[in-house]
Simulated scan of single mutants.
Amino acid sequence: MHTSALVLFSGGQDSTTCLAHALARYERVETIAFDYRQRHNVELEARLNVLREIKARFPQWAAKLGEDHLLDLAVLGEVSETSLTRDTAFKMEANGLPNTFVPGRNLLFMTLAAALAYRRGLQVIVTGVCETDFSGYPDCRDDTMKALQLALSLGMDQRFLIETPLMWINKAQTWELAHELGERSGVQDGGKALVDLVVEHTHTCYLGDRTHRHAWGYGCGTCPACELRAKGYAGFVDKVNKAPA
């Protein structure tokens, strides 16, 4: 039986929902993030705010939340020529992938997360990759995660479980999942509390915009990440409004 987990936690909507998922399931949960000189490095500050708010608003989860780890991965920014690591416009490349794709990013993230999990005695690695609402990134695919689980388990001679709670749901369903997890947290009106926390404190915008406030949170409102988040939030609100009283 698995009792501990390491969550890849960037401070965005998806990773915050994954963190709530882990806190609802496991007795000990730690978090890891990476500074790869991303343009939207404001997320590194946002994630600390999210952790603070979770501890303050969800006492039962706070008791499970362990150490947070931030790794310097500057080399990834050095070898990447993408719109997430360079000041260039978002566009589709000739190979059919958006230039927001950072080659090797999730492969490196998962390898380093497994190395840390090995040292910390953590059994499960939780990541927010998704095949339903995603930009075509090959390192977000279910097949990639299954291959990594096998390779990392063999390479470290320790059986890791890689959990992907968002793999087969869209962004509206991710909002719904956050609400559901909050409701199960033991906090009164926990669903609303967790959704409000995601709106106010998480960061998704690729441009790192924290000046423009929308119903779904902060961001430029026009980059691919903002558009996806806004669309998902609208679908979530529409479903809530149509639900019987």
Rank of each mutant, 00 (worst) to 15 (best):
Q60F: 13
Q60D: 14
W61L: 02
A62Q: 12
A62F: 13
A62N: 12
A63H: 13
K64M: 11
K64N: 08
L65I: 07
L65K: 07
L65W: 13
G66Y: 14
G66E: 13
D68C: 08
L70V: 13
D72L: 03
L73H: 02
L73V: 04
L73N: 03
L73I: 02
A74C: 06
A74Y: 10
V75L: 15
L76H: 03
G77Q: 08
E78D: 15
E78M: 05
E78S: 06
S80M: 09
S80T: 13
E81G: 05
E81A: 14
T82N: 08
S83C: 13
T85L: 14
T85F: 12
T85I: 10
D87R: 10
T88I: 15
A89W: 00
K91V: 04
M92I: 05
M92T: 08
M92W: 13
M92H: 09
E93M: 12
N95Q: 10
N95I: 06
G96R: 06
P98C: 09
N99K: 09
V102Q: 01
P103F: 09
P103T: 04
G104A: 03
G104N: 00
G104R: 01
N106Q: 11
L108M: 14
L108Q: 03
L108G: 03
F109I: 01
F109A: 00
F109K: 00
F109M: 04
M110R: 00
M110F: 08
T111K: 00
T111Q: 00
A113L: 12
A113N: 10
A114G: 01
A114W: 01
L116K: 08
L116M: 05
A117W: 06
Y118F: 12
Y118K: 10
R119V: 05
R119D: 11
R119T: 09
R120C: 06
R120T: 01
L122C: 05
L122P: 04
Q123E: 15
I125H: 04
I125M: 09
I125E: 03
